[in-house]
Design a protein around this nucleic acid. Structure first.
Length: 560
RNA sequence: UGGGGGAUGGGGUAAUGGUAGCCCGAUUGGCUCUGGACCAAUUAGUGAAGGUUCGAAUCCUUCUCCCCCAGCCA
């Protein structure tokens, strides 16, 4: 996979190389992507997915998809389905290795029993508040629980009865017996099982005790034969605990946890809690709103899996916390779509033009290239007639120096059609608004070219009034105005009130009439657009994925 | 002020004792039937101070700054 090339020189690959050179794991490389099904996947997860699956692929290994579903109060089947769909869409395949931590509840319970038998775990009756107090602080050691030295027999009995549902929620826990004075708080007798009388989305009411992540994760990895367990930086502190369980239970060839930095983007928020708030309070239309940084949102926006994969691969993987400019993500969609998206002419803000010397009732059809980057994409017929629409911004009555478009007395090219010259500007007598242009065309310029060497600086897109199809076009911008949505302390205050602009009456050339949801186009001189699922044959709806780079807009904003 | 990590141009990331490179952005010019794309050029960096060395982003010492950890979340 070409776009994963840059993933080759990561510090993780060096570790893998060293392991193979040393003959560890029999030369195997087996990773896993372990999402918790408690929300939708977002752009940040894309790095984890590409790293987990990509590194396995690069090393001839395997990657499992495993749902880390050990907390039934937060998890739901809806999320399982969306995650499966999103990982597939991104282009990765886990074969028949779709697993759930909940598949291992019985084995995990047995491991816990073994720990008790080895004197390495105990049932603790401290309340949550007491546990916190006993834990100590960052600078002071903790105190040992008074229940720490119960006999193996008593612990076994109590743990069995926890499972049997004899005790109320929160009344007891199973804890690993490690070291209450450890400078690493994770090692201060962490809770490994808690009582939750909650229905689990897969195991139903079978269990009322559930294992904690720190216990379930290394052992799930061990059960699946994982060799390299890749996760994000905040788990570095948990690695000693990860290793402790594997050693305490005498796991042979234990998996190795390796941490890398999260992927963060400017103008973007990825906290599940905050994203949920945007959805719940109606600031967006759902988890798949095209402004959302979720994979579902990016998909609906028109992003391609390849663009996202290339973005991740080119951005690289390291241990440095960093934030990537959103513009960089946009670069890779443009790069992909430039090569693949058929071009089409769409007028977003129509201005009527009558070509006064063109015969009334006449219609000509021009063959226009579908993609100048790809001659094999061929051409399409585009109808032309006496009345057309051009973009309002493509005309100025009193143009500044660097404006190359239409103006009174000026000649421009209509893409693929004719040269026209503006002769007259018609305004609404009440408002002064320009309502129509009267132009003449040069019949010698048929097809958009003359042989006399005349230079025409501007080329405009256009649609024939009688042939254009109407469409709704949705223009998106950053959801947040500031690079850091948290700037000022309240991300809600930084919401962009204009993140969505709906243009209900756009005019598009007729070749798009039969486009269906997900189809992508370049609207000439505007950007890349895709058909939204809201689209119907009666009413086409397009989403703007990303604009084209626009040097004219840049000139304008510099002068203002 | 405990522990664990991290600092390379505006952003991201390579170089593991031997020419600081690549990508994004920005700027300038060229080209163009998309002010797109493409081509060319420019801009600009090793957190600080010492030390070792013929030679240091890389090794050593000290310092500075940033991130993470006190859930019965993951």
């Amino acid at each position: 996979m070409q776009e994963l090339e840059p993933l080759r020189n990561t510090f993780i690959q060096e570790i893998i190389d060293a392991d193979r050179a040393a003959g560890r794991y029999g030369g195997r490389v087996h990773t896993r992507f372990p999402p918790e099904p408690n929300g939708y996947l977002h752009i940040g997860h894309a790095r984890a997915i590409c790293v987990d699956f990509g590194l396995a692929m690069l090393n001839g290994g395997l990657c499992n998809l495993r749902f880390d579903d050990t907390n039934p109060t937060k998890e739901d089947e809806e999320y399982v389905q969306s995650i499966i769909e999103d990982v597939k869409w991104l282009g990765f395949d886990w074969g028949d290795r779709l697993y759930y931590a909940s598949d291992y509840f019985e084995q995990l319970y047995e491991y816990a029993v073994q720990l008790i038998k080895k004197g390495k775990a105990y049932v603790c009756d401290l309340s949550p508040e007491e546990i916190r107090e006993y834990r100590g602080t960052l600078t002071e050691p903790g105190k040992e629980s008074p229940y720490r030295n119960r006999s193996v027999e008593e612990n076994l009995d109590l743990f069995r009865r926890m499972r049997a549902g004899e005790f109320p929620e929160g009344s007891r826990t199973l804890r690993a017996k490690i070291d209450m004075a450890s400078p690493n708080l994770n090692m201060r007798d962490p809770v490994i099982y808690r009582i939750q009388k909650v229905r689990h989305h897969r195991t139903g009411d079978e269990w009322c005790i559930y294992p904690m992540y720190d216990f379930a994760h290394p052992l799930s990895d061990a059960i699946e034969g994982i060799t390299h367990s890749l996760c994000t930086l905040e788990f570095e502190d948990h690695r000693p605990l990860y290793d402790w369980f594997l050693e305490a239970l005498e796991i042979k060839d234990p998996p190795k946890q390796i941490e890398f930095a999260r992927l963060e983007l400017t103008h973007v928020i990825t906290s599940k809690r905050r994203l949920r708030r945007l959805v719940d309070e109606g600031h967006v239309r759902g988890w798949d709103d095209p402004r959302m940084p979720t994979l579902a949102g990016l998909r609906r926006r028109g992003y391609t899996p390849k663009a996202i994969r290339t973005f991740v691969a080119e951005a690289g993987v390291s241990k440095t916390n960093s934030k990537i400019e959103y513009a960089r993500l946009e670069h890779y969609v443009r790069q992909d779509l430039n090569a693949t998206a058929p071009r089409v002419m769409a007028v977003l803000h129509p201005l009527r033009v009558v070509i006064t010397n063109y015969p009334e009732g006449q219609v000509e059809t021009f063959e226009v290239e579908n993609n100048p980057e790809d001659p094999s994409a061929g051409t399409r017929p585009v109808p032309f007639s006496r009345e057309i629409y051009i973009e309002r911004d493509d005309f100025m009555e009193d143009p500044p120096k660097k404006f190359f478009r239409l103006a009174p007395g000026r000649e421009v090219r209509l893409k693929g059609a004719y040269y026209i010259t503006c002769q007259e500007v018609i305004k609404d007598p009440e408002t002064g608004e320009i309502v129509e242009l009267r132009c003449t065309y040069d019949p010698e310029s048929r097809g958009g070219w003359t042989t006399d060497g005349r230079k025409v600086r501007g080329t405009l897109h256009w649609v024939s009034a009688a042939h254009a199809v109407k469409a709704e076009v949705r223009l998106y911008d950053h959801l947040f105005l500031t690079e850091d949505p948290e700037e000022g302390g309240d991300f809600m205050a930084n919401l962009n009130p204009n993140s969505l602009v709906v243009l209900p009456e756009c005019l598009i050339e007729p070749s798009v009439a039969n486009a269906s949801a997900g189809d992508r186009f370049q609207f000439l001189r505007h950007g890349y657009f895709c058909v939204d699922p809201d689209s119907t044959p009666e009413k086409l709806v397009f989403n703007r994925t990303v604009t084209l780079k626009d040097t004219w807009a840049k000139i304008q904003s510099k002068e203002s």
